[in-house]
């Protein structure tokens, strides 16, 4: 795709710490244009967070094998190391974590953590100027009495406020791409909505490209332009939100959508589930990883990993039965 701010090509990540390498990500292609939001949807262990962290190269290098190409704002991420990698992180691409209580340093004030990031990336900014910017950021993410909160420690804030502070930290150096790793999962339902709206609003104002990892379809629909469904380290279906939600074509996506509790419409009945469990990533079958759980699977499914089938409007599915399922 031309004009993309972030382009991932054939990303493969394997963790080599165990006896058998765990293939957490197995050939992911993804491209974002500026200002676009993609929701990366999948269950635990589907490789969505691993994909996200690979973009910042946050995996321990001695225990991870990472292949493919990642280009963000013209920077070849895979070629970076040392100081250049540190300069890239937080400045070109920054990240919001699932649990801000764990992702913020407990013994530094929030203000100190934000000014530290600003002064790291922009030499010559005085401590005063950095603090003023941090204050501006706190106002922007609508933290009440921001002046006082800058001097607070993470444990002194509520979960929602902490996540706002985390967002302020991520936006401190005007990144072009924002990675959000389940930023609302650890929050109360009411606070979730507020954070989601705030993120969406800031993303539009700043024209940020954003990858939003979630396992909550509702959240993905709310926040994203496109949805990418991951299963066993691969994107099995990707497309505009309405295409994927209204006309899902991969059996896994179809199954996923049918498991949602549709308000009260299914009251009195058992929730539908996808039978079986996700495959062991250390010994993936050669064919389609979903085949063992798939009702329309045939022997052909077990032979080779299905290639992506383009259905138009950027809607692509990795299933050899696409035509039949539709």
């Amino acid at each position: 795709m031309t004009g993309s701010i972030l382009e991932i090509r054939d990303l493969r990540v394997a963790f080599t710490g165990a006896a058998k390498p765990v293939r957490a990500v197995d050939g992911v292609d993804l491209a974002l244009v500026p200002g676009e939001v993609v929701a990366l949807l999948g269950e635990s262990g589907s490789g969505k967070s691993v994909t996200l962290r690979s973009i910042l190269r946050l995996h321990p290098e001695n225990k991870t094998r990472i292949e493919g190409s990642i280009v963000a704002a013209g920077i070849d991420v895979m070629a970076l190391s040392g100081a250049a990698l540190a300069d890239f992180r937080g400045k070109t691409v920054s990240m919001i974590f699932q649990e801000p209580m764990l992702a913020l340093d407990p013994v530094y004030t929030l203000g100190a953590q934000i000014t530290e990031a600003i002064r790291k990336h922009e030499s010559g900014v005085s401590a005063d100027a950095a603090r003023k910017r941090a204050l501006g950021l706190f106002e922007r993410v609508r933290i009440p009495s921001p002046e006082r909160r800058l001097d607070s420690y993470p444990h002194e804030l509520s979960g929602g406020m902490r996540q706002r502070a985390m967002i302020a930290l991520a936006l401190a150096c005007n990144p072009k791409v924002l990675l959000a790793d389940e930023p609302t999962t650890a929050l109360d339902a009411t606070v979730q909505v507020q954070i989601l709206l705030l993120l969406r609003e800031l993303q539009r104002e700043l024209d940020l490209a954003m990858i939003f990892v979630t396992h909550d379809i509702g959240v993905g629909v709310e926040v994203a332009d496109r949805i990418a469904v991951m299963y066993a380290g691969r994107i099995v279906e990707i497309g505009a939100v309405r295409d994927v939600i209204r006309a899902p074509r991969h059996p896994y996506t179809i199954g996923l959508l049918s498991t949602r509790a549709q308000g009260g419409r299914l009251s009195g009945k058992r929730l539908p589930t996808i039978t079986g469990s996700p495959p062991d990533l250390a010994s993936l079958p050669p064919g389609c990883a979903f085949a063992p759980r798939c009702s329309s699977a045939t022997s052909a499914c077990l032979e080779a990993a299905p290639a992506a089938v383009e259905l138009g409007h950027g809607h692509a599915v990795r299933c050899i039965h696409t035509a039949a399922v539709a």
Binding site: A86, R89, G90, S94, F97, E99, L102, A103
Partner: peptide, 27 residues
């Protein structure tokens, strides 16, 4: 701990991360 990943994610060098580790270990 996760915050060490957080520190790296915001662009701190290993030396910068070390400073944070020291302050966390000091008490």
């Amino acid at each position: 701990q996760e915050f060490v990943v957080g520190l790296r994610a915001k662009g701190l060098s290993e030396l910068g991360v070390f400073g944070h580790v020291v302050k966390n270990a000091a008490p």
